[in-house]
Amino acid sequence: MLKFSNIVKSYKTGEVVVDALKGVSAEIKKGETVALCGPSGSGKSTLLNICGLLDDDYKGEIWLAGKAVSKDKKVMTQIRREKLGFIFQRYNLIPVMSVYENVEYPLLMLNMNKRERMDKVVDIINKVGLKDHISKRPDQLSGGQQQRVAIARALVKRPEIVIADEPTANLDTSTANMVIDLMRDLGNDLGCTFIVATHDHRMTDRCHRVLNLADGNLSAFNPYETHRRAG
């Protein structure tokens, strides 16, 4: 599904050059939920941004469904629009839009007709359990509820890959667990591939695979082992 090889990324701030990624490669299969772990500053966000086609300033290559992804801005935007979903740490819902409108937004960009949009939006909002809040604005919702809206927004168009950067970092344990289960279950139902950056072992426990980043290099871990160590 998604393959990246030899990704090298360095940040330059004035004279100082930070090598955030020093040539990382991996392959993620369709339907897999992969956790990206590592200490703070290890380059998780950097790698996710590159995989999510948000950043075109790197060395290395990315393949999506067997095809190399060009670094053309327009092409990248179009792929994001059609095939990728994003979940952010701080939810990033659009404040002037209702829950319904926030979830509908990605479908609007795909020029789907109204009937079809409505079916999909209502369906996914039911699935994330926010039926009763459908016309509320984000600021009328709790953090957990907002993140569920964000999950619905990311999944409503059935993207091939969902990119989530620390989606549970701002949530308390029970809410985080619920959000994690929701992501996994819905993702399994829809056959989405998930890449989740997290330090949260609650999250890594529930993933198929864990990729561990340390100091800009990647190594694979068995989730069971991770769990034991964390415990």
Partner: peptide, 13 residues
């Protein structure tokens, strides 16, 4: 700015 970033990420031109 963050809202702009969000909708750009989602594929807005």
């Amino acid at each position: 700015t963050r809202e702009i970033g969000t909708v750009s990420a989602m594929g807005s031109y």
